[in-house]
Design a protein around this nucleic acid. Structure first.
Lengths: 120, 120
DNA sequence: GGAATACTGAACCATATGGTTCAGTATGTA
DNA sequence: TACATACTGAACCATATGGTTCAGTATTCC
C-alpha cells in the first residue's frame, strides 16, 4: 500500500478517533500541561503519551514548547474549522437527501388519499 | 494491545479519516449507489470498496440493503450530531482558552500604557 | 559533582488498516 | 440450461497504530 499525501482532514479526524487524544484536548482546553502531567492523568507511560501528543501536534490541534527540561503542551492554533465545515456540509447533504425522501413519502400519501376517495 | 470497547465516536471519526470514505458519503448524499458503482467511481476493487462500506456501516453512517444480487448503499440514519457536538464543545474550550489569553494580553497592554504614562 | 527529573529515541509487539487476488455463491437473463 | 453479473469471504501483504521497555541526554537542585 502506497501512502498517498495525507490531507489535514485525514490527519485531524484520525487524531480525533482516539478517546485518549480527545481527552487530552479537553484537558488542554482547561489548562496547559506537560507531557508528564498528561501521562499521569491518562495512566500511561511518558513515551506513550509523547506519541499521542505527537499525533495531535502533526494534526495541528496541539502545539508544544520546551523550556528547560519541560515540554508544555497547549491547544493548537486551529479551531477545527475545517472539520466542522466538513461535517456541516455532510449534514446539508443528509438533509437534502432525507427531504427528498420525505417528498416521495408525501407524494405517496397524497396518492393513497386520492385512491381512498375514489373507492368510497 | 488489548482492544477496549470502541466508542461510536471513535468509530465515526476513524471512518471519516479516510478520503475515499468521505467521498463515498458525499456520493451517497447525492444518490444511493451499489457497491459496484462506488467501486468504479473510486477506482477500486469491489472487495476493497465493500470493506470501506463496511467501516461506514459499522460507524452507523451508511446503511445497506441487498435486493436480488445488488446491495444498495444509502446514507445512514445518523446525522453526525454526536460528532458535531464534540467539535462544538472543543471549540468552546478553545474559545475560552484563547479569551483567557486575550485577557492576559490586555492586562499587559494596560500595564505597559500605565508605565508609559508614568515615565513621560 | 552527583542525584533526581523530564524528556527522547530506538526497538519491539500485537493488532488494525487499506488494499489486493482468487475462488466461491447467488441471481438474473438469453 | 448456460452465461454474465454482483457480491462475499478467505488469505495475503505492507504499513500504521497504540502501546511497552530500556537506554540514553539534558536540566535542575542539593
Amino acid at each position: 500500500m502506497v501512502q498517498y499525501s495525507r490531507t489535514r482532514l485525514d490527519a485531524s479526524f484520525a487524531a480525533l478517533s482516539d478517546a485518549t487524544r480527545r481527552g487530552v484536548l479537553e484537558q488542554l482546553g482547561r489548562a496547559d500541561a506537560s507531557i508528564t502531567e498528561l501521562a499521569e492523568k491518562f495512566h500511561m507511560t511518558l513515551t506513550g503519551m509523547k506519541k499521542h501528543v505527537g499525533v495531535l501536534e502533526q494534526a495541528g490541534l496541539v502545539t508544544t514548547e520546551k523550556v528547560g527540561r519541560v515540554r508544555t503542551c497547549k491547544l493548537g492554533l486551529r479551531e477545527l474549522e475545517e472539520e466542522a465545515a466538513w461535517i456541516e456540509r455532510y449534514r446539508q447533504l443528509w438533509d437534502a437527501r432525507f427531504n427528498e425522501l420525505d417528498k416521495v413519502v408525501e407524494e405517496l400519501k397524497r396518492k393513497e388519499q386520492a385512491d381512498g376517495r375514489k373507492k368510497t
